[in-house]
Design a binder for these strands. Sequence first.
DNA 1: ACCTAACCTATAGC
DNA 2: AGCTATAGGTTAG
Length: 377
Amino acid sequence: MDSRPAPLPRATPWRSLPCPRAELRLDLVLSGGQTFRWSETNPGYWTGVLAGRVWTLTQSEEHLWYTLHEEEKEEDRREEDILSEPPLKKGRRHQQLDTSRAGLSGHSGREQIRGVDGLEPSQILRDYFQLHISLAALYQGWSYTDAHFRNVAVKFPGVRVLRQDPVECLFSFICTSNNHLSRITNMIQHLCQAFGRRLCQLDTKTYHAFPSLQAMAGADAEARLRELGFGYRARFVSESARAVLKTLGGAAGLQHLRTVPYEQARHALCTLPGVGAKVADCVCLMALDKAEAVPVDTHIWQVAKRYYGQELGMGARSVTERVHREIGNFFRSLWGPYAGWAQAVLFCADLRKYESPDSDAKSQCAKLTKGSPSILT
DNA sequence: ACCTAACCTATAGC
DNA sequence: AGCTATAGGTTAG
C-alpha cells in the first residue's frame, strides 16, 4: 500500500488516483518537451499550473498523488512583486489583470463546453493525463510491429501524450521554432509572468496562469515580447493571438477543432503566422485529440534516418514539407492510429539521450550520427 | 510542387 | 577569451 506524502504548507491534503508507473512517468512526461510549465521543485515532486490552479504532483508504484496550492489574495501581494513586473503604467496594470481574468473566463467558452471549472481535481488530472487510455496496451502493439520501438520502450515506459489546453499549447509551440528547450522554457515563463494572471508564490518562485488571447493580442504585446527576448517570434505570438480571435472563433473556436478531422484542424492552424506543419502537428497531437498527428522535427528526422532509413529510402538535406509528409505517413502505417503517441516515446528517449548528464553519451551519439555515412544517401 | 536562405537569441563547443 | 554553429522551424522567393 502506498503511503501519503508529507503535507505541504498552504495546500490541500494529498489525494491520489490509481495509476501504475508503467502507465505514467511524471519526469518523462512533464519535462520531455510536451509542456514547459512544470518543474521538479523537489526530487520526485513536480509543481506547475494546470487549469488555472497551482499543483504539486508525485507518484508511487501504484498511485498518482496530487495537492492543490492555495491561491493568494490580491492584497497578499507584496509591493515589490508588483513593481518587479514588466514596465506598465499603473492604470494599465489593472486593465491587464482584468483582461487576464476575462481571458480565463474567456476560457469559459471551454468551461461551458467541458465544465472544467466545475470538475473535480481528480477529473482534471484524468483528463490532462488521458488516463482512460491504456498505455501498456499501446506499447505492446507498437513493440509487436516495430523492433526499434521495442528496444526503446524498455528504457522509457510511461510516456503518454498530455491533453493540453489548446491556447497554451499553440502559443507555447509557436515559441519553439528554431529554438532550444532551455530557452523555450525561459521564454514561456517570461510570457506568463508578463501577460498572465499571478496565482501564487512558493518559496521564491511565482506562478502565473497562461495568458489569455486578449492579453497576447494587446497593442504593445509584440514590443514587450521583443524586450523579453522573443526575437522574431514576438510578432508570431501577437499576430496569431489576433488571428485566432478574429478568424478562428477565439479560445472556444480553437477548442472546437477537437471535434473536426485531423486534416481540417491542421489546415486551420497552418493559416496562423508562425505555425507551419510541425507546430500544427504538435497542437493537433497534444491539445486537439489527433492521436495520429506525427510532429516531425529535426530529432525525429534523425531517428527516422538512423533507424528507419531502409524503409523510407530518401536522402533529403533538411526537413522539407515533403519529408515531413513522408515520415508522418510512414509512421502512421507502422504504428497505426496512435502513431503520434509512439512518436512521443521515441522523441522523449532521443531528448534524454542528449540531455543526459553523462556528456560522454552525448558526444558518442553526436559522433555516431555525424560519423556514420547516412544510410539514406 | 519542392527546395534554400534569412531570421532573433542563447548557449554549447572549439 | 572570442567566434561559429546550432537549436524541437517558418517564411519569403
